[in-house]
């Protein structure tokens, strides 16, 4: 056997072995990652969790509307835009609220959460006035 061939062969063996090991570690890594994420997230305060739930709820609703548009067509286009932007807009506002309420953010340390909540309410009302006007 050619030495180079041997070398090549041994290399390829090594490669395969390494790949197999890597694959195994990737799936376990992913599991580990998710697990660590979940444990880390469990430590999140409940009020932030509620906001996250709200954001997810809004985004899912927007996605359903986009799917409906894909199935049916975008005829009352302003209505579609109003529906989707209402959800996305409120989700963005909720994210802003989350940033301000989060105690870890030193930037907003002096800002009381009540003030942030009032902002959230005001912005939502303005947003939906525009949405209603555009709804047609």
């Amino acid at each position: 056997m050619h030495p180079l061939g041997l070398y090549l062969t041994s290399f390829s063996y090594q490669e395969i072995e390494k790949k197999l090991r890597m694959a195994k570690s990737t799936s376990s890594d992913a599991q580990m990652l998710i697990r660590s994420l979940r444990t880390a997230y469990a430590a999140t305060p409940t009020n932030l969790k509620i906001i996250d739930l709200y954001v997810v709820y809004a985004i899912v609703t927007a996605v359903i509307q986009v799917v409906y548009m894909g199935v049916v067509g975008s005829f009352p286009f302003n209505s579609f835009l109003s529906g989707v932007l209402s959800c996305v807009g409120t989700a963005v506002l909720a994210v802003c609220l989350r940033i301000q309420v989060n105690k870890e953010n030193k930037e907003f340390k002096d800002l009381p959460p009540e003030r942030a909540y009032a902002d959230f309410i005001l912005c939502n009302l303005v947003l939906h006035l525009v949405i209603m006007n555009f709804l047609g």
């Binding site: 739930l53 709820y57 409906y68």
Partner: peptide
């Protein structure tokens, strides 16, 4: 049907709230 579907996430939101123990 899609109208009902858009209401589903809201139900999910309520269930999630209950599980968080609000």
């Amino acid at each position: 049907a899609f109208l009902a579907l858009t209401l589903l996430p809201f139900v999910g939101f309520l269930i999630g709230l209950m599980r968080l123990g609000v």
